[in-house]
Design a protein around this nucleic acid. Structure first.
Lengths: 340, 340
DNA sequence: CTGAAAGCGCTAACAA
DNA sequence: TTGTTAGCGCTTTCAG
């Protein structure tokens, strides 16, 4: 029982009014064009009856707007990004915008290809958490003046707006927290080092150590992928050192999970034998035993600010280039032990 | 430095060939139309040079295809759905399809509204994990012959295709697992009871109890929302019973987290004082202490099958109505203790 | 082998 | 207060 999709044209024929009148009424320009009450009522009634919905392709073609925002995320299964995506979608849909979602799978090739796709599909704006290794495929977005904002990950010395956490601060405070609990041998389990957040967290880590006069030990800085597996391998390695760390700082929730696995397998106890702090707070962190001390990022705020900025750009409002680093917060739980 | 977006028209002017020829070449119809080598080369070269990408809105308007699949999920921050979404996106992008993502936030109103949106946007297919309370807003999708498939959640006695887990089996086996470990007083912490999976898991639970001659106790069946908070409150309540359960079966990973919180707060120990099994296996389950026994669902397969089916429908291949319930698997870990 | 032209459904400038 | 009409960029029929 296929129901033909009603068009403005059909409503025009049925009501006897022209397509322009129908269009005007349906787009809320009734008073502006002083459309008669009679026409308004009839048209609205018929549209309702037929369950009319304007064809967005036609509308978009004409208006050169798609009412959709492209979102490119390296791993939607990572709860940090999932939460961000949730709030981005929410903010967008509140303004009748939709989200075209891409999971780049931490793969630059897919990212490149899908950025092209987003351009071809005329996204009104694009939000991306770049994989991190390359950035020249973003220049076309900028040349075409398509509103673009990076979230979480971004590039240094670059005009592209971004919203992220203050990773320097986060790295610094996490490390400081460990130091203030008496730790001097602190292992840093890193994510993808081609990525700005990792670099800054690393800087924060070093800054804290130096401030407290602790000499850096490059063997304690290890890892290069945001995954459970990488966290696991890295921690296994670092625990085999002649002088293993007394505390670990894991750079993401996935890495943290891998770290816990490695620690368990080595028959070590958290926090008795080794302390742990994890970047990025996830619901389950509180339920692990011991509960895990984390660095909390405001993913909700990141998403909201990104969408807001895109909307401002879409509406041609003047704005400074948005380059925001949101404060992070240490959520102190039971995985860090005071020593000495 | 705004770069005009090249159109087929412009390429036509530059190369001196008509738009039709350009279109044919660019769409790979060169041999079919026996286009001259010369024309082919010139056109392709220019298109490449100008970084031409066909305008998808115009193309869609003409073709009446959008090359996009709508995905409506109740909570993208739930790792189960996130994982599913990841695989859906992956499968779709492999065929040059994109995903329009909606998070219905477990809210029927938003779901309704966004289903309308999907229709207005002419999705080539729609995949939805329905909130569960209502289904009549899906009829329009069906009347319009838009390929539709439900994932995870679905409706009974309904022609709409779905891919889900075998929730009856999952509920049955989880309960049986507990019973075989000596438990007779088993609390069932439910999710949204307007939802088919919850109903079936519940049936599986009851079936197992009856099979073993254990009388049902309605006070042990509690809860109605897929959330940490609901799991927490429900478990608190059930633990206050004069005869509290010796084992708990939590119907989702979020509910499981809430259960753990409540158990801890009551100063009970898992599994010494109380056993726990959780529906839906998530990476962190292995890292909780104790590690949690779970019912694993194949979210990857769910996603893939759903997308495949949509593609078959899009391509007008004949298929039976897809109504698949994938087997689940008990992942036995340390949260269930043998008693008596 | 190639081109002209219609038309997908909509908006908006222009005309009345 | 309303209608006519020209496109938006593309595909495809029909005509060479």
């Amino acid at each position: 029982m296929q129901v033909a999709k009603p068009t403005i044209q059909q409503i025009s024929e049925i009501t006897g009014y022209s397509v322009s009148t129908v269009s005007r009424v349906l787009n809320g320009y009734s008073k502006q064009y002083r459309i008669s009450e009679k026409a308004q009522e009839l048209i609205k009634k018929k549209a309702e009856e037929l369950n009319f919905k304007p064809n967005q392709m036609a509308r978009g073609l004409r208006l050169k707007r798609t009412f959709t925002i492209g979102l490119v995320i390296p791993d939607i299964a990572n709860p940090f990004f999932a939460m961000m995506a949730k709030h981005i979608e929410k903010a967008a849909s509140l303004s009748d915008y939709s989200i075209l979602l891409v999971d780049s799978d931490e793969n630059t090739e897919k990212e490149k290809q899908q950025i092209k796709n987003m351009i071809a599909r005329d996204m009104d704006g694009i939000i991306v958490a770049p994989v991190g290794s390359e950035k020249k495929h973003f220049t076309e977005i900028i040349e075409r003046k398509i509103p673009l904002v990076f979230v979480d990950r971004y590039f240094e010395n670059c005009e592209i707006p971004f919203v992220t956490s203050d990773n320097l601060q986060g790295g610094y405070e996490a490390t400081k927290h460990l130091i203030e609990n008496g730790h001097k041998r602190i292992g840093l389990i890193k994510g993808d080092t081609s990525t700005q957040p990792v670099l800054e967290r690393l800087n924060g880590y070093r800054k804290a150590l130096q401030e407290y006069g602790i000499t850096l030990n490059s063997a304690y800085e290890i890892g290069d992928t945001f995954s459970i597996e990488s966290g696991y391998q890295s921690v296994r390695t670092v625990l085999k050192l002649p002088q293993p760390p007394t505390a670990l700082f894991a750079m993401s929730n996935l890495i943290g999970l891998g770290a816990i696995k490695a620690i368990k397998e080595t028959d070590l106890n958290i926090p008795t034998d080794i302390s742990l702090i994890v970047y990025d707070d996830q619901p389950y962190a509180a339920f692990l035993n011991p509960s895990i001390t984390t660095v909390k990022q405001d993913s909700e705020q990141i998403g909201k600010l990104a969408v807001n900025y895109i909307f401002k750009k879409i509406n041609n409002e003047k704005t400074d280039v948005l380059q925001v680093k949101l404060q992070t917060q240490i959520i102190s739980r039971a995985s860090v032990k005071k020593i000495k």
